[in-house]
């Protein structure tokens, strides 16, 4: 059985974290928003510029009868929204083609990533959590380990995991039985190699099994964990793993997540995702294969 380091060393074309994401992540973790630096990032990327123009002139942010140019759009949207657009666009490039090993159609892993970011953002707002933007970022990157599994195991993944699938076990337990590690662990390691802050690595690593007790317990991990389950209920990025995951009781109780709030979060996450997809005019195939 290969270990995580060997795989990360061996995999060719390991997904690289775009420099713009590193710069935006620095701003998010330090709590400083530098509009002029974001403007520099945006001006060097045509796709990003287009996304920002579309957003600033959309029904949500635009003004009837007026078209904002790029400079006006940057000022109008402000740092927080611009950072999210940068992250959405750049993560799209990483995730959009991946996921076949998990039985996901093209674009499905990206929809799941963005759905997780939106759901985490929604939950953070409901609970007035201070690090809302970190929730968005960690929700977006939580399944980055699936990229590595996809690249390393490819079409052999299904036959390898099938021998270890037990309906009463969670999917990450089945992955550990098959490979000695799961996609969340390898995702956390990859985030470490990218040089992301330890708190983000930990959130990716534990997003399926959030620690309940101090000092490991972190509300950020809890929120991203709950967001992952919300995505499953919204039908996002469901592949061979199906719904073989558990919502940790301490997260459910700690967030006071009840049926009504969960179903509302499901519907709001799905609607917001659909709005973004429409505004991106993205030619993603929107469904997933089983």
């Amino acid at each position: 059985m290969a270990d995580i380091d060997q795989i990360l060393d061996k995999v060719d074309r390991l997904p690289a974290l775009p420099s713009s994401v590193v710069r935006v992540t620095d701003m998010l973790t330090s709590g400083t928003t530098d509009l002029s630096e974001i403007e520099q990032i945006v001006r060097h990327d045509e796709a990003l510029s287009m996304a920002i123009l579309r957003q600033a002139n959309s029904a949500r942010y635009g003004r009837p009868g007026r078209m904002f140019d790029l400079k006006q759009s940057i000022v109008r949207l402000g740092g927080k929204i611009l950072m999210k657009i940068v992250l959405e666009q750049q993560a799209s490039a990483m995730f959009v083609r991946a996921g076949a090993a998990y039985g996901l159609r093209r674009g499905a892993l990206w929809r799941g990533a963005l759905g997780g970011a939106l759901a985490a953002d929604q939950i953070a707002r409901t609970h007035d959590f201070a690090d809302k933007d970190l929730c968005f970022l960690c929700g977006l990157l939580r399944d980055v380990g699936k990229l590595v599994m996809d690249m390393h195991f490819g079409s052999e993944y299904l036959s390898l995991i099938s021998k270890h699938m037990q309906p009463e076990h969670t999917f990450v337990e089945c992955e550990r039985a098959a490979f000695g590690f799961d996609h969340a662990q390898i995702g956390g390691e990859l985030a470490g190699r990218w040089g992301l802050p330890e708190r983000i690595c930990k959130t990716i690593r534990f997003h399926h099994e959030p620690p309940a007790e101090a000092p490991e317990h972190d509300l950020l991990v809890d929120i991203v964990h709950a967001a992952d389950i919300i995505c499953l209920w919204a039908g996002l990025a469901i592949g061979y793993d199906g719904l073989q995951y558990k919502l940790a009781p301490h997260v459910r109780d700690g967030l006071g997540l009840d049926r009504r709030e969960a179903e509302l979060d499901v519907s709001l996450t799905w609607c917001r995702l659909h709005e973004i997809e429409e505004s991106m005019e993205n030619a993603l195939v929107q469904e997933h294969d089983s």
């Binding site: 499953l232 209920w233 039908g235 199906g242 799905w270 929107q286 469904e287 997933h288």
Partner: peptide
């Protein structure tokens, strides 16, 4: 004809295949 999440397709074309992918709790 691919039916997405929260979506419907109705059809009277006998040559068509209508499909919806990855139903979980849906």
């Amino acid at each position: 004809i691919v039916v997405g999440v929260a979506d419907i397709a109705l059809c009277d074309d006998p040559s068509a295949i209508v499909v919806t992918y990855a139903l979980g709790s849906c």
